[in-house]
Design a protein around this nucleic acid. Structure first.
Lengths: 213, 213
DNA sequence: CGTGCTATCTTGACAATGTCAAGATAAAAA
DNA sequence: TTTTTATCTTGACATTGTCAAGATAGCACG
């Protein structure tokens, strides 16, 4: 995924070439190394090897940088789920389970990035890139759930949407709880190995067996 | 709940009396009115009617103020779920459903506060008040799920913990998605009336009826 | 090849914020 | 009444986002 090696802060020419992408890469390094609070415009500029005011011409404001980072995050997120599903068996439920695991895995591997992507107020949702990337990820969710839902006997678009929302809420909620550290502080013993939780949804409670709810 | 009337910024005596509580109250007003990003030490001090450096003696740092606010938030959160359950029928599943609705309702009513309570890095988790308040809320979760789980035939502490985690993830995930605005941007039509979603978990998929999963 | 033009980058500045130090003030203690 | 302590204020400094003005390099055009 997003590699953690800092981009070389030296440059030969006065013009950078592709400072915008360099800033996004630097921002990803900061997110990985120091967390979301440490991601400032000046820090990203320094890692990219430019002056503190250079980013303005390429990302506008801090919100612009965060938006660009989040947009790329949604692209990587989408790709991560896609490859996980490709490596899974073709059964709709197995693919759904693989996607859920990838969802949580991505969040645990990139906590600050996921935090940013779902931070609500920090991003500029009028940005076309961000909207396109997130729309694609959201559509992917429905596409993953649909075959599994039909296999489960859910008929009608309303049922599928409802089930997709339930799956999304469960997986996203677990990912968010894991990231926030709530599971480490929760009721004693309520801490299964983190990347395996989606098995909770589709393991013991799989259709036809286990507890019905 | 946390009332939104600003505390009177005037005071007769030089000493404030209970500046710490006044700061927490002011912070809650700011959270409600302007969101988490607007909650600064200086803004809270101004709303409390004191100088910008006065909070240091009572909450230490910004992290101290956020921690105090979050601790009180967990207390209110706990109380909110408790009263909702008291007003519900005595059936374990009905109480669970009422608690889920209250969970999402609290989050939708206090988005910035919930965001802070589950923000992970911004709080000082060595603070005894915060730990006590959150522990009580987490224990409440298990206590709510246990009777419902036993009614569903879940036997053994392991099953109960697993089911509690599933319920928690679902409800928390939906609340977080709703707060972050993701549902407004999600797949078209996937937006049920917000405070009613927990009915998704316990409505169509209630034991003995609807889709089994 | 020379001359402007424009995008790009730098420097400098300002307001807001968290934090610290020093002093002023009030309440309590002696 | 005097001293001590807790509380609050004032002032300062570093950091950050943002803007304005100027410097620089790449490019079009003659």
């Amino acid at each position: 995924m997003s590699k953690s090696v800092p981009p070389k802060p030296t440059r030969r020419t006065y013009h950078h070439g592709d400072l915008r992408q360099a800033l996004v890469a630097a921002a990803n390094c900061i997110l990985k190394d120091e967390g979301l609070d440490a991601l400032t415009l000046r820090a990203a500029a320094q890692r990219a090897g430019v002056s503190h005011a250079a980013p303005a011409h390429h990302v506008g404001s801090l919100q612009g940088l965060l938006t660009a980072v989040a947009a790329q995050g949604f692209v990587h997120f989408h790709a991560s789920l896609e490859t996980a599903m490709d490596a899974a068996p073709t059964s709709p439920l197995e693919r759904l389970r693989a996607a859920g695991r990838a969802y949580v895995g991505f969040a645990v591997d990139n906590p600050a990035l996921i935090q940013l992507m779902f931070s609500g107020s920090r991003l500029d949702w009028s940005d076309p890139d961000l909207c396109a990337a997130s729309d694609r990820a959201y559509r992917q969710l429905t596409d993953i759930v649909r075959p599994a839902a039909e296999r489960l006997g859910a008929s009608g678009e309303e049922d599928i949407r409802e089930l997709a929302l339930m799956v999304w809420s469960s997986v996203h909620g677990y990912a968010h709880l894991a990231i926030s550290g709530a599971l480490d502080r929760g009721p004693a013993g309520a801490r299964p190995p983190i990347p395996d939780l989606p098995g909770l949804l589709f393991g013991r409670w799989k259709p036809g067996g286990g507890v019905r709810i």
